[in-house]
Simulated assay, not measured.
Amino acid sequence: MPVPLPGADRVDLRPPDRAETVAIVRGLRGMIAPSGEPTELQRLLIRAISHSMTGFDVDPDAVTPLPPEELARKLERRDAVFRTRILQLALIGELVEPQPPAEVCSAIETFALAAGVDDGMRQVARDLADGALGLALHDFERNGYTADWSPDSCRQLHATAALAEPWDQATHDPELAARWAELAHCPPGSLGRGVHQFYEARGFVTPGLPDSAPPYLAQHDWVHVVADYGTTLEAELEVFGLIARGIPDPRGFSMLAMVLGLFETGRIERAAGLFEADAGHLSRDRDGMAVRLGDAMRRGAVAGVDLLGVDWFGLSALPVDDARRELGLPPKDGAATAAGSVGPWDKGGISPFQQRSGRAKAEAEGRPYLSYGAELG
């Protein structure tokens, strides 16, 4: 029987204390490695994310695993959203495995049933464990955050034609292209001017023009600037970790599941209308990336805003720091910066391909190339 959800008079909405954090880490270890040891990447992720989200540092190697049913009982005073977030932490540990072991899927399913909650990405992980990649991709689309998309969902994008699917392009939309071009005239130091320079330095094509990214995907480019993240694939993991955890609807987790499949396991070959698989970017620097991802998720949780649903043009004239405050977005933790997290104008904040594209576009337009400080790492 599932552990009943508490009523309004019993629900605990306080942040976890140390004892509860230890219990959660024990439970996560019990789900991710039911009969063995977590991988090094899984250990680092459990430790870094739990520390970023609670403030308590718990070493997964220093605790005994907790059975999934017992963890559910320890969360008896927590609501469905809290329990779902814990399920999603376990799913992160599962989804960084190219083919999750069946026993891990079973342990996570046991917790979901005992806690009375679920997440659509659990079925995706089960499909991957069964080797059913095609079914996994189908279930990802069916259970993800954008599954309920409708043309009314995209007013903030300002496309003149309705977008039937979230990742549809708008490549011949003069009004939309003109709106993006106007960002060049925003005040110096503003968010809008920063986004214009962000595109210029990397040779990106703005929505509304041929060969541009989908307008919905372009929403995340504003996040790179306002949240101070570069544009390497490691930084994309940070950006989507922030976005996914910031979306109040727990289904937003699918955005993080998407980039884990693209940029860690490579099991998702193509997504979001533009991204293509390039595996290993979370495990390449396991220690640093675990800290960076954990901090990005913390920042998203504090803000609690669907950053893909923001009408960014309404904030474009604000100084970047003011826009950040308007969104309730906290700064990076120093540990993330020390671990290698950089901004779009820093060394390591741009990829070689993007730099070449920026130079080629500048040459084609007959102007000097400006990187605005972005350098190769």
Rank of each mutant, 00 (worst) to 15 (best):
Asp311Trp: 00
Val259Tyr: 05
Glu326Lys: 09
Val117Glu: 07
Pro101Leu: 13
Arg78Asn: 07
Val291Ser: 00
Gly261Ser: 04
His51Gln: 11
Gly116Cys: 06
Pro207Asp: 05
Ala360Pro: 01
Val11Ser: 09
Ile46Tyr: 03
Val58Arg: 03
Ile243Asn: 11
Phe275Lys: 02
Gln99Glu: 14
Pro344Glu: 06
His138Val: 15
Glu326Trp: 01
Asp321Leu: 12
Phe240Pro: 03
Trp222Met: 12
His172Lys: 08
Ser254His: 01
Glu40Ala: 15
Arg122Phe: 04
Glu365Lys: 09
Pro174Ser: 05
Met1Gln: 12
Arg299Phe: 06
Pro248Val: 06
Gln354Asp: 13
Gln169Cys: 13
Ala317Pro: 00
Phe198Asp: 08
His220Asn: 14
Leu135Gly: 02
Pro151Thr: 13
Val3Pro: 07
Ala72His: 01
Asp61Pro: 02
Pro38Asn: 06
Gly131Lys: 04
Gly120Thr: 01
Leu262Tyr: 03
Leu163Cys: 10
Pro319Lys: 04
Ile243Arg: 08
Ala125Tyr: 00
Leu327Phe: 04
Tyr229Trp: 14
Pro60Ser: 01
Ala102Pro: 02
Glu200Pro: 00
Ala136Leu: 03
Gly373Trp: 00
Pro248Lys: 02
Arg270Phe: 13
His224Asn: 08
Val124Ala: 11
Ala303Asn: 05
Gly309Ser: 13
Ile350Phe: 09
Ala162Ile: 11
Leu217Ala: 12
Leu89Trp: 05
Ile350Arg: 07
Leu28His: 05
Val81Tyr: 04
Pro15Leu: 08
Asp139Asn: 15
Trp345Thr: 15
Met53Tyr: 00
Leu307Trp: 03
Asp12Cys: 08
Thr146Gly: 00
